[in-house]
Design a protein around this nucleic acid. Structure first.
Lengths: 185, 185
DNA sequence: CTATATCGATACAGATCAGTATCGTATAAA
DNA sequence: TTTATACGATACTGATCTGTATCGATATAG
């Protein structure tokens, strides 16, 4: 296994564990135990656990937005339906067994100092997602695309929190329907 | 200081620290240091840290819903405005310096096993809040009060998450305006 | 005054935490 | 074959974690 593969595997295992058990509750020892990679190797790739967390979040952000884009692209060309298709991606996310709430909101909850790199990574992710919503809203002909994007984001975040605590049964579909009515109003 | 006062103070200090630093990151040693109460005394009142957390969340839930009720009662008698007034309470919460996201969502993120007492406490809180929304929606004459309550909840949760990560500037007001448009549609 | 209960202070146990130091090994390019 | 690089295994450090054990002080009720 190449060096880059080991690094990638560390990130992959760490992401899974951080999602499942949280950031403070997941020790470095557990990450190396489940990945079968020596602790020394981990610290050759990442100077600290904090650095590993930030790397994991950056990877999550990249993957999240890529997959959401794919879901939107697969929807078709109706610009309003494309905006609403973001909720379909939410549903597939909720239905996956690995779903335990938004990793970025959880991370922001555990590292809630404004200047903390982990918190900053959460901010960055949310901004990028909203920017994508705005892009879709603009394409759908909304003159107040910024405002529409913020509303869609409200429903997204609400759906994630509701699915996390109360269960994912039809939450995304309900949020999508709510968004549809909102866009029509 | 009486026994009950000490217990109450422990809960108060612990709530503040859990909110600010998270649940795993807040050690028992810190709680006793900031409260000036001996560790033995803490463990005479609470059999474990987990038990203290659950007690804190129960107290938070009680206070949260009481204060939200007060805010609604102070609004007047227009039933629809009373439903929308729940967003005004959100804004006062966001503006308080102690706001660091929803304590229940954060707790659910750190203890995300379904059967864990902490997670169960989060579920209970969310159900009670939604039940209150439904009560207000019913009073406002909505025949689909259950559905309206879920929609209001989506916007509430979304506003909390957005305020936590991206800042509280006008988030609640925006959510309120969105809710108003939604109810009119 | 005496009995009971609660308290604070301290030390401790045993586990786990993040991170480092050491050393022998495997691989691959030169 | 030599050299450089990354690796695993292990042991370790010093701090911190939850929780307990011990003991003397204090306060209150009968």
């Amino acid at each position: 296994m190449k060096r880059d593969q080991k690094r990638a595997q560390l990130v992959e295992i760490a992401m899974k564990l951080f999602d499942r058990y949280g950031y403070h509750a997941t020790g470095v020892d557990r990450i190396i135990a489940e990945s079968g990679i020596a602790k020394t190797t981990l610290y050759r790739h990442f100077p600290s656990k904090e650095d590993l967390i930030v790397t994991c979040l950056a990877k999550r952000d990249e993957r999240f937005r890529d997959e959401m884009r794919e879901c939107v692209e697969a929807t078709g060309h109706d610009p309003r339906e494309r905006l609403l298709a973001t909720f379909d991606y939410l549903q597939t996310w909720f239905d996956s067994p690995a779903f335990h709430g938004c990793p970025f909101v959880c991370a922001a909850g555990e590292y809630c100092e404004q200047n903390h790199p982990v918190f900053q990574q959460a901010i960055l992710h949310k901004r990028l997602v909203i920017a994508y919503f705005e892009e879709l809203a603009h394409a759908a002909g909304f003159t107040d695309a910024k405002n529409v994007a913020r509303e869609i984001n409200l429903l997204h975040e609400g759906a994630v929190a509701a699915a996390q605590v109360l269960g994912h049964e039809g939450v995304a579909a309900h949020a999508k329907q709510t968004a549809r009515r909102l866009l029509a109003a």
